[in-house]
Design a protein around this nucleic acid. Structure first.
Length: 480
RNA sequence: CGGGUUGUAGCGCAGCUUGGUUAGCGCGCAGCGUUCGGGACGCUGAGGUCGCGGGUUCGAAUCCCGCCAACCCGACCA
């Protein structure tokens, strides 16, 4: 038993960070790169990203957006055109000063995000109201020199999707930010099985250069929040800086209203931290590289017979659209494989051995419930898709009840401090930056969002006692 | 960038206090054999710039100085 403890990962309750790091490495999701803060996404982790990407990309296209690609390098002077934007990003920029063996006349910035370069191009492409709206998305890597990296959640270089759109007026642009919010919510809930709270960011948490930022917040198992996607209404800030304007139907030269919105590989980290347990990862079926793993048991002629049935089963499952893998590695014991696939989060495992064949059944083990059941080998394939759906729903329901249990509506400072130590605190707030700052310094918690779905409420600020500002409760938590 | 911890084989560690032959152990890896229903076992074997640089010494993984890196906790952030 001591031996098996050594092989297990650190329990969440003992050290959540250690649990997370060990899991990411041992499940072969990712590895660290040689430059501080960089990450190698290994095939298993990258496949999860690809599945997420596929789901999101389909929704982006279905809402009229087109993919394009813009350069990694941005002239430094472009970035400085929007004052708040530069100020926000300056500390985390990677800047190329030498290239081709010489010092460059003008330094080149490695994009931390692409508002500026895309703004520049939009200005060239848009001249008439007939060119609007312009709905563009790109899948790209970006670089932000993070001081405290963490695999998936905060890496120096990360992969994401960034949507950039230009509109004739504010109403249309605001509508666009909600379209993006809509598909992020759908992908979070239906694909990643993550319940999200959607709302506006307070002024202090807003994107550099945005007039309005909408975010999707999830709560992970150590009681911290993760912003899993954001959607920004940029007003005419970037349009002014880059002269993105059009001639209206009335012949008037008019500034565009632009938006941007993004979801990154951080989402994978949110999935790991929301669903994982002490045995390892638990993947929602719709993001699982292998939804079902078949572990054949037996040896010699028994194994041969088992493998024939296993192959037949795998073929039947593939025809039903199930991602299935047979683990036919011969040097590992079944017990080892059980533990390994549990570590790697495979939703359903089918154990198939001589005893099953003799009884005409297959044994199905459920990663979430830990239960095993036996199904007739004739019916098992047909049963799997429904069980995967049920797994997906159960995982979402579990995450939702966790969040509900860790969201406290609080009216006193004492209750507030206790709430943010374990999850979301829902409280009235005065809206003043200095008050947010004081809360952050004393508790580590920041405002997460002003939720859309919240009853109107008035009263006094939970921290300073002044009249509240938002006309409703807002959400606070410690965040990644 | 501050505070803390740690750098010895792919991974996890011992050895360092009190300097002294070929630097050990577990896991993993390779070969062979036996195994195979919850992390199998035996035998054999490969694998090391002891983080880097300097110093003290007849002799440094061990003592001294400097540097670097990683991780954790903060400040910054998707």
């Amino acid at each position: 038993m001591a031996k098996s403890n050594e092989r297990a990962i650190t329990p969440q309750s003992e050290d959540f960070s250690a649990w997370y790091n060990e899991l990411v490495l041992r499940a072969e999701l990712a590895d660290r790169g040689p430059v501080r803060g960089t990450m190698v996404m290994r095939p298993y982790g990258y496949r999860i990203w690809e599945l997420l990407q596929g789901e999101l990309d389909a929704r982006i296209k279905a809402t009229g957006h087109e993919n394009a690609y813009f350069p990694l390098f941005i002239p430094e002077s472009h970035l400085t055109r929007e004052a708040e934007h530069v100020e926000g990003f300056a500390p985390e920029l990677a800047v190329v000063t030498h290239a081709g063996g010489h010092e460059l006349e003008e330094p080149i910035v490695v994009r931390p995000t692409s508002e500026t370069i895309i703004g520049e191009m939009f200005a060239k492409w848009i001249s008439s109201y007939r060119d609007l709206p312009l709905l563009i998305n790109q899948w790209a890597n970006v670089v932000r020199w993070e001081l405290r990296p963490r695999l998936f959640l905060r890496t120096t270089e990360f992969l994401w999707q960034e949507g950039h759109t230009a509109h004739a007026d504010e109403a249309d642009a605001q509508r666009e930010t909600m379209v993006a919010t809509g598909f992020y919510e759908e992908v979070s809930r239906e694909i990643a099985a993550l319940p999200v709270v959607i709302g506006d960011k307070t002024a202090s948490e807003r994107f550099a250069g945005a007039k309005r930022t909408v975010s999707l917040e999830t709560l992970v198992r150590d009681g911290r929040a993760i912003q899993s996607a954001t959607s920004h209404y940029l007003g005419t800030n970037f349009a002014k800086a880059f002269e993105i304007n059009y001639t209206s139907a009335e012949g008037v030269e008019t500034l565009c209203h632009t938006t941007s919105w993004g979801m990154s590989t951080r989402m994978v980290g949110a999935v790991i931290m929301t669903h994982g347990d002490d045995k390892g990862l638990i993947l929602p079926p719709r993001l699982a590289p292998h939804q079902v793993v078949i572990v054949p048991i037996g040896r010699d002629s028994e194994l041969e017979a088992v493998l024939i049935r296993a192959n037949g089963l795998a073929e039947a499952l593939k025809e039903l659209g199930v991602r299935v893998r047979i683990d036919d590695r011969t040097t590992l014991s079944p017990g080892f494989k059980f533990n390994e696939w549990e570590l790697r989060g495979v939703p359903l495992r089918i154990e198939l051995g001589p005893r099953d064949l003799a009884a005409g059944v297959a044994t199905i083990a459920n990663r979430l419930s830990g239960e095993k059941e036996q199904l007739s080998i004739e019916d098992v394939a047909a049963e799997i898709p429904g069980r995967l759906d049920a797994f997906q729903s159960a995982l979402y329901a579990r995450a939702l009840s966790f969040r509900e249990e860790h969201t406290m509506s609080v009216d006193s400072r004492e209750a507030f401090d206790a709430a943010v130590a374990v999850g979301f605190a829902s409280a009235l707030h005065c809206g003043e930056r200095s008050c947010e700052e004081e809360i952050k310094e004393s508790t580590g918690a920041t405002t997460r969002c002003i939720p859309f779905e919240a009853p109107r409420e008035t009263g006094s600020c939970v921290a300073c006692g002044k009249p509240e500002h938002y006309g409703q409760r807002i959400l606070f938590a410690r965040a990644y």
